[in-house]
Design a protein around this nucleic acid. Structure first.
Length: 610
RNA sequence: GCGGGUGUAGCUCAAUUGGAUAGAGCACCGGUCUACGAAACCGGCGGUUGCAGGUUCGAAUCCUGCCAUCCGCGCCA
């Protein structure tokens, strides 16, 4: 915040006034400044009088009057009044808004860096080897990317961690299946892998009760429950796979080479999808379960040595003081579990990566799992970095993607909808719309090359999908309705892109912002737009803490809406007074940059035309 | 059975974390383009915030009890 920040100035003035009016003991009273919810009331309001009234035993309105008698807002506030039970309503002077806009009109747009120099580790996407990506991965990728970009915007180093499901009996089963099928792994496609995966699954469960296993099989990514094939009483297929796994672990060169090829094939396909989605993640983000494999025995030993784990019916478990269900970290047969791997991963991320914040962008149904793992890791101090700083461990759990019927989104055949298919359809529909509009000779996109139009269509389609995913509370389920998303009307990603594109062409026609342009937000629409702009840094800071991108979506949508109103009410190019025109152009330019910056944090492109 | 989430306009979602008359979008009705881009703007219709109590100046938000619904619950990941 700069010293031109009118809200900080008002806050300070009120604190001084409260101290002066009520004496010592009222040194540090929060004026409870809030944005006014309705413009009729004012721009901002202070709600301190109500709580202070109680403390002083005086009517809140009287308290408010006393404060206003004492306060000196300088020329920041143009109008103040008392309303209702004791709200202090304030209207900012145009000059104060102008000064604040001037202060934020810098490359940073007022967004401050986070002081921490530790990296942040984000566990996101987390695909399963040999499986196609499906909608279950969409949210982790989109939300994770938005969070990562927001933290990077604040100067943090973000280490994306693709916690691959690349180890264990499931993977061994697929390998065995591939060899049975005589598949040449040098030319293997993800299709082959996916098929082998399904066949392996079918074989594994053929000899056993299938219903429950089938239900789990279709549940989602490996971080959900994809293969229910590790129960005791393994049949021959599983026994053989476990044998393979032992050999693989022992370093059998041929098996290891096949295993690598399988991973490479999967990840090449993943990369293609990730790139098309515009999610920033590369192969150097890969750190799968296999990475932690040789640390798992040590994890269990550490818990045993510290007395935090005990043996129970042959298994090793960790107890929690407030829960009766323990967490198993080693099975009776000596095998390790998902929890064991996650404990190793936390230790790696604090001890080796030095991360002071570890975020998990994983389905919310795993809340209990992460609660257990986080708490257990704290028992051994594995949440602390080398410098003694305790890392913040956070599970950003997201809800399920539902179809129009309100049930988890599936294809007609009942399998999980392919993520690539969804993305391609969104892009196709975005491109169709862009192409159709470019037919109009007066359209700004008229005459653009097919390549350019395709690029714009892609940006529009992707923005539609992402905005739908990001604009509501991540923890809740949401209905994936392609028709609504790509209607491109109302509260959608394309609406934001459209606002941005209009500003671009406006500035284009004007030849940019004139030298010496000064902010003069006198018209109500100009001032409202200006006030909204001033809130940008705050919302970015907020999202980087709360991990709620939907607040940024809401902010940008309001900004775009206020711009649309302003655009309707205030002529820019036709403004008669050159100073007014210059002011409006500068305002437009600032809106454009904030929109573009905000869209980028959400992982969306902002084309100049659409 | 135990634990957790959710419940807001016909539909999809918000609500600055306890503030004023609960807001948007879609749908519906009515206005605004020989154009600073109508993917837009302006107005209208639409609510007992699941129900019942409680806390206080003030509750969608906090507490208690119900109802509905979804999810999780030791050797799967």
């Amino acid at each position: 915040m700069t010293n031109a920040d009118p809200i900080a100035l008002i806050d300070q003035s009120l604190r001084v006034a409260i101290r002066a009016a009520f004496g010592e003991g009222f040194d540090d009273v929060d004026p409870i400044l809030r944005e006014a919810q309705k413009r009729e009331f004012g721009d901002w309001q202070a709600n301190v009088a109500m709580s202070l009234g109680k403390r002083l035993g005086k009517p809140p309105r009287e308290v408010a009057e006393t404060i206003l008698d004492q306060v000196d807002f300088g020329d920041v506030v143009s109008e103040s009044s008392i309303a209702g039970p004791g709200f202090i309503n304030l209207r900012l002077s145009p000059s104060a808004v102008a000064a604040a806009l001037l202060a934020m009109d810098t490359p940073s747009l007022g967004v401050a860096n986070d002081p921490s120099d530790h990296p942040v580790a984000i566990d996101m996407v987390s695909v399963n080897v040999a499986k196609r990506m499906h909608v279950g991965h969409l949210r982790s990728a989109v939300i994770g990317d938005a969070i990562a970009r927001t933290l990077e915007r604040r100067g943090r180093t973000v280490i994306r961690q693709n916690h691959l499901g690349d180890w264990g009996t499931p993977i061994a089963l697929v390998l065995a299946q591939l060899r049975n099928n005589g598949v040449n792994l040098d030319e293997v496609t993800l299709e082959d892998l996916d098929t082998a995966y399904r066949e392996a699954q079918a074989n594994a469960k053929a000899d056993r009760r299938g219903a429950e296993a089938t239900r789990r099989f279709f549940a989602g990514s490996h971080r959900h429950a994809e293969l229910e094939a590790q129960n005791e009483g393994a049949d021959e297929v599983i026994a053989a796979a476990k044998q393979d796994l032992v050999q693989l672990q022992a370093g059998d060169p041929e098996l290891h080479a096949d295993w690598r090829k399988m991973i490479d094939c999967t990840l090449d396909a993943v990369q293609e999808t990730i790139d098309l989605l515009g999610v920033r993640m590369r192969r150097d983000s890969d750190k799968g379960e296999s990475f932690y494999n040789d640390q798992l025995a040590g994890v269990v030993d550490a818990f045993l040595a510290s007395g935090k784990a005990r043996e129970d019916d042959g298994a090793i478990v960790v107890d929690f003081p407030d829960r009766d269900r323990p967490m198993i970290i080693r099975k009776r047969d000596g095998g390790f579990l998902y929890a064991t791997t996650d404990l190793a991963a936390i230790r790696h991320r604090t001890h080796d990566l030095n991360a002071d914040r570890i975020l998990y962008i994983v389905d919310i149904r795993q809340r209990d799992h992460f609660r257990d793992v986080f708490e257990a890791s704290r028992m051994l101090g594995w949440d602390t970095c080398a410098d003694g700083l305790a890392a913040e461990l956070n599970h950003l759990g997201f809800g399920t993607v539902l179809g129009a019927d309100g049930k988890p989104l599936k294809t007609r055949s009942g399998t999980n909808a392919s993520l690539m298919g969804l993305i391609e359809e969104a892009i196709r529909r975005g491109t169709d719309a862009v192409l159709a509009r470019s037919q109009d000779p007066s359209a700004p996109t008229h005459g653009l090359s097919e390549e350019d139009l395709g690029r714009i269509g892609r940006a529009v389609g992707i923005a539609a999908i992402k905005y739908a995913d990001l604009s509501s509370d991540a923890a809740k389920d949401y209905v994936f309705d392609m028709d609504r998303m790509v209607a491109f009307e109302g509260d959608t990603g394309p609406y934001l892109l459209y606002a941005h594109a209009r500003i671009c062409s406006l500035l284009d026609r004007a030849g940019g912002v004139p030298n010496g342009a000064q902010f003069q937000p006198h018209e109500p629409a100009e001032k409202d737009l200006g006030l909204q702009l001033l809130g940008y840094a705050k919302v970015v800071h907020q999202v980087s803490h709360s991990l709620e991108p939907h607040h940024l979506c809401g902010y940008l949508h309001r900004l775009a809406g206020l711009f649309a109103s302003f655009y309707q009410q205030c002529s820019v190019l036709k403004a008669e007074d050159p100073a007014v025109q210059a002011s409006r152009l500068r305002l437009c330019d600032l809106v454009r940059r904030v929109l573009s910056d905000g869209l980028d944090l959400l992982g969306m492109e902002s084309p100049q035309r659409m």
